[in-house]
Design a protein around this nucleic acid. Structure first.
Length: 493
RNA sequence: GGCAUCGUGGCCGAGUGGCUAGGCACAGCUCUGCAAAAGCUUGUACAGCGGUUCGAAUCCGCUCGAUGCCUCCA
């Protein structure tokens, strides 16, 4: 029995601006495409947030029992530097700068990307195709668009004819723009453009002699335009229409708008049923930007080597911090916010550990089934992880009360609670318990237990000087002792 | 200038017409040898100004402000 038959999901569709009941095109199967990174520099934290949102969504779909094909591309051909004639491939430019082969740049930053995502405990997508691996498919789509009359060739380059397209289709429907307004607001380009009008975008660019990344085509040597790779790869692996297309909010226009135009022009169908957009991450209230220095890389957070934060934070704490905000909201990263999240994260993980050791009775005054459904309701409402987390904290509170003997739980309810907590915390939110050091299994745990024993002996003898010394010095080492009704436990932070 | 999203208590962040998440911080209490941990209690929050309504943080209008896009960007 698949869970999705009971759990009815609603998603916010950017195309309509509304929350809609989610119904996949083919029952039980989901095709999802997410625009991946351009691998010309280290992946930054804002990128990670977007991919993390879709990782969580991917995880939830899988949890519900869907068969998901999740395609997330690697853009290794680079995008055009700009719209004008001097268009230059971003990756080629970086390569020249560093005097290495373009594919060397691609390789280096692809590895960085994968390493970083792995630290954040990402699930790998089903397919991770590259733009350079799909040049032939891209050329085929260009041919089709030309055939249908929505593109034209000039001097070895091919451009999409937006005005022509807009006569029969609606260019701008995703981002809420009107072509007339865009024409009226066009900024004057100083460089003379060969395009028929400024709204047209490149499908194929002629390669200048100095351009390293180049492929032969019916229009001469060149390279594909900015938006084409996603159309080519999503169509190839998910079909002409598929369920979900995701990406960062900043890609809505022009990138996703152009994808819609390319697909509609080439095969006459709107490519995507649900468009999902993840919102931006800001740093101290401002846009992340390398040029202003308001920027931080994941590895700088993990190591603590940065000028912005007071200490290092583990990947799972950062993940928890991001999951505390809804994916469609702008989230602001700051030291205060991370500090608060870290404490909350520790509380959640302590709760999970306490749950394991909970004593059970014949009666239960915690309605675990009702609580469990509330967790699903939160996720079913457009993946509302902040509400889910509030329910998880409710459970932590109940766990602590049961531990104190103020409430009770049956063996059966305890098992259900454990199973549900583990599903949501680890499988769906993708968190990891990175704070405990295996209290019972390593030497450190044994040493701390020994000290707890010595301390309790001292306390029994009213030798508080000794007992407090043990407690305070352990605390200084980051080991916190917790006296409870059932004895003393500890946690390592 | 245009388009979009948004402005919630000390901080972060949910919530879309009445039942008013959650985390962190602060204060009081219980527990404790004292603490810590845990639990309990308290906070008269919805940018401003109008309007609709029996009733608005939630709908409408205007003003101010923020963020993103309009040029590569998740």
């Amino acid at each position: 029995m698949q869970l999705y038959k009971d759990q009815h999901l609603r998603v916010h569709n950017s195309l309509t601006g509304k929350k809609e009941v989610f119904e996949p095109i083919n029952e039980g199967h989901i095709g999802m495409y997410v625009c991946g990174p351009t691998v010309y520099s280290n992946v930054h934290l804002g990128n990670c947030r977007t991919f993390m949102s879709f990782d969580m969504i991917f995880r939830y779909f899988k949890h519900l029992g869907y068969k998901v094909r999740y395609v997330r591309n690697i853009t290794d051909a680079g995008h055009l530097e700009n719209d004008a004639d001097e268009g230059e491939d971003k990756i080629a430019k970086k390569a020249k700068l560093e005097q290495i082969e373009p594919m060397e740049v691609v390789q280096r930053y692809t590895v960085d990307f994968h390493n970083t995502l792995q630290k954040f405990n990402f699930l790998p997508p089903s397919i991770e195709p590259t733009a350079t691996g799909h040049i032939i498919e891209q050329i085929e789509i260009i041919k089709e668009i030309i055939e249908k009359g929505y593109a034209y060739e000039i001097n070895g380059s091919v451009y999409f004819d937006v005005i022509k397209f807009n006569e029969s289709n609606e260019y701008g429907k995703l981002s809420g723009r009107k072509l007339e307004d865009m024409i009226a607001n066009t900024r004057e380009l100083t460089a003379q453009s060969e395009k028929k009008n400024p709204q047209d975008f490149a499908l194929w660019k002629k390669a200048e002699p100095q351009h390293i990344m180049r492929w032969p085509s019916p229009w001469g040597d060149g390279f594909p335009g900015w938006h084409l790779e996603c159309t080519a790869m999503s169509t190839k692996y998910l079909g002409e229409t598929f369920d979900i297309h995701g990406g960062g909010m900043d890609l809505k226009f022009p990138h996703h708008e152009c994808e819609i135009a390319q697909a509609e022009a080439s095969n006459g169908k709107s490519p995507v049923k649900y468009w999902l957009h993840a919102n931006m991450l800001t740093l101290n209230g401002k846009k992340m930007s390398k040029s202003t220095g308001n920027n931080i890389y994941p590895f700088e957070i993990f190591s603590g080597e940065n000028d912005i934060l007071s200490k290092a934070y583990s990947p799972s704490v950062v993940r928890f911090f991001m999951m505390q905000a809804h994916y469609t909201s702008i989230l602001d990263l700051s030291d205060d916010a991370l500090l608060a999240s870290e404490k909350g994260y520790n509380r959640l993980m302590d709760g999970l550990e306490n749950l394991e050791k909970l004593k059970t009775t014949n009666t239960s005054n915690f309605d675990v089934k009702a609580w469990k459904q509330k967790c699903y309701d939160a996720m079913n409402d457009d993946f509302n992880t902040p509400i889910l987390i509030s329910h998880l904290f409710d459970a932590v509170k109940r766990i602590n009360l049961i531990k104190e003997g103020k409430e009770t739980i049956t063996e059966e309810d305890k098992a259900l609670l454990q199973q549900t907590m583990n599903s949501f915390v680890f499988d769906i939110l993708g968190l990891e318990n990175q704070k405990s050091v295996g209290e019972d299994t390593n030497a450190l745990g044994g040493v701390v237990e020994l000290l707890i024993k010595l301390r309790n002996e001292a306390r029994a003898n009213k030798d508080f000087a000794t007992s407090d010394k043990i407690r305070d010095e352990l605390n200084a080492l980051g080991i916190q002792l917790k006296d409870g009704k059932e004895g003393t436990t500890f946690s390592i932070n």
